[in-house]
Design a protein around this nucleic acid. Structure first.
Lengths: 219, 219, 219, 219
DNA sequence: GATGAATGAGCGTTCATTCAT
DNA sequence: GATGAATGAACGCTCATTCAT
């Protein structure tokens, strides 16, 4: 039995097909993630993936008819997972019950997605890199992922605006500020940071405070 | 004489080698920028570039010994330009003389870099895409570009903190928030935005206010 | 039980091994005939055959160790069948008893082989196509099939020449004319003809008359 | 300068592009003809052709974008050449002036096409083999080649029928008999014959007499 | 300086065949 | 007997790069 990494298991569980995956198939995905994230899709060769996975090159094509389908099988599921927290049905109830103020809500979301990013850095990196070059990904994002999360996010924004906890900017503008700061935080933390003194807790809190100060009314 | 696009002229002027560039060479760079930005470096072929540029394949290699050097000749100069505003010698004097408060300074910088981004979207897109895959670019950025701009930026931050115009966070943290919001704004505007009602002036101002509220002390 | 087509049953009966053939084996042969005849041997893939036959790829190789042996198992038997009418022992007796004149003999042979061709078009097409590329087939034809039929055919030709019913050309020449016209007729009818008004009976008779006029003495 | 074989020169002259063909290109075509005719199109590999031609594999694809286009560039021109004798404008005049009786006409055609076949055996073999598998070839044959030759042939047949030199069968039937015997002769001579005592002149004359006796009225 | 034919390594993919289950 | 995952050699084709003209 091969050592299937936890993040991979979780990502694959999405499809409910994980069961069917053979040992070799998992090794292929694992190798592909590493190599794609290191060299980019177009810069990676299937022979290199096969070698790293310890399988014959033909084996890759038995499971994924083309190199591109291998990419999509890795990258497409991440999108659903990425916005999963917003997919709950009774979103408004959750809001009211669990998050009395915007700070707690924002902190919960940021923390949760930060953990998610930590688990899936490699796949997220591939996703960010390849989305401009693959129409299928862009379409999936625009048609199914983005609308879902935006709808819920705007609902939350209007909810807190009604309570006077957020300034009266149009929800898309607020959304943009928050998303930008969140994504910027994640990119900085996982893609740029190489070394030094960095305290996740502290910086996360600073980012939250920055967003809150930027978006809450001064009394 | 070929129609050399203004942004290209400006970018190339950097090297002070513009003079030496032949008509064909300019066409090559122009074609390469278009194709690299559309398909990524690894996904582009030199033959396609040659075709779009209207030159023979060999001509590309006469001017740029390798495909990679062609990329670097396009992408490397953008880095210097990107941080040019911070390269003035008497930075402190400029600060004191021209920007009495942080809002004006931030607005000036953001506006200026926004114009720059508008001119160089394609090259910037290539730059963002390729920097993770090319050590030379990363090195150049870390060794020459980043230090210069960070030094000046920290100086400015400390300057405004000393005047009580910025909250007392460590300069790198402040820098991160501002940079994240700026870059996020630019990416959103130029890479994601497809269509709709978007007012550059308005959104720029909103972004500035967001940053300011997030980073200035409440009285 | 699979629907085994009559022509196939007849062809396979040759080997006296028909009994041993499993259901799956028959499906494999059936699929192989269709695909070989449509795309040629070299242009067909075993995986496509397996798919069309509804069996696993491995199953083909359990029964026929190589792709080529599958071809030969289909094509080799057709040769024997092709010349079967000449394989009767007391050929001269049959001639004297049943065919008083050359016209009746020729008509009988042509009709009979025409029916045979109708039944086995696909396999015959494969045979014609592959014989130049497979030494085994060529050898089998030259060493066992051709001699047998030629011997009998020459006997018949000499028999009718002795009776003054055929002109005095060397038997091989006569054989060539007849064979050419017969094969030409069959190819035209089964491989070229796409559409139109064509009356088998009429054209067959015309062909017979053409051969007879060409080869019988004018009084 | 490479030794360009005469038959190849003649075949290529068709296109009036022969001039433009490089030395290597000719070697490629020459090697392709040999290998295709020996192993069939699907059974040949481009690497083998390159090796035999003494060029790099890439060179083949610089001149012929695909393996199939290489095949077509060889096989398509033969069709036009094949029926060239019927392409003369004033066909009826030629008939009346040069061929007072059907025997002379038939002999002229047969001899001429026999010489043609001698020159182009290899390419003709490829043509015969590949026509069932390539729609382009079939279309070209049905749409442009066949109609032209049939029109002229039927004209000649009716011409000789009007003079009482041919029996009153429908021209297509007559055409079929003649074509079958001609093609059969050629195939027998060039594709089947391996060795022995065979006198071209004698056998050609026998074939002509066979056709004539089969198709001319007995007085 | 510019060309484009030529190269050969390497690409993604398919293939006939094997073998543990 | 039947399966289908696995193989790795070979396929058609593209690539960045060279060099004689």
């Amino acid at each position: 039995m091969s050592d299937i990494e936890p993040w991979l298991a979780e990502l694959l569980r999405l499809n409910d097909e994980e069961e069917k995956m053979t040992d070799k198939q998992i090794k292929i995905v694992q190798a592909a993630v590493e190599i794609f994230s290191e060299k980019g899709f177009a810069g990676s060769s299937t022979s290199e993936i096969a070698q790293k996975a310890g399988v014959a090159e033909g084996t890759i094509f038995r499971h994924y008819k083309t190199k591109k389908k291998l990419l999509l099988s890795i990258v497409a599921p991440i999108m659903a997972k990425l916005v999963a927290p917003f997919a709950v049905k009774d979103f408004t109830k959750v809001l009211e019950a669990d998050y009395p103020d915007v700070e707690q809500f924002l902190r919960a979301v940021l923390r949760n997605r930060f953990e998610f990013a930590r688990k899936h850095v490699h796949v997220l990196k591939i996703f960010l890199h390849e989305i401009p070059f693959h129409a299928e990904l862009r379409e999936q994002f625009k048609d199914t992922v983005a609308p879902l999360v935006l709808e819920k996010a705007y609902k939350a924004i209007r909810h807190f605006q009604a309570q006077g906890q957020l300034i009266e900017l149009p929800p898309p503008a607020i959304m943009r500020m928050v998303a930008t700061s969140m994504i910027g935080f994640v990119i900085f933390r996982f893609l740029l940071l190489a070394e030094n003194d960095w305290d996740d807790e502290l910086e996360l809190e600073r980012t939250i405070q920055f967003i809150l100060h930027g978006l809450t009314p001064r009394q």
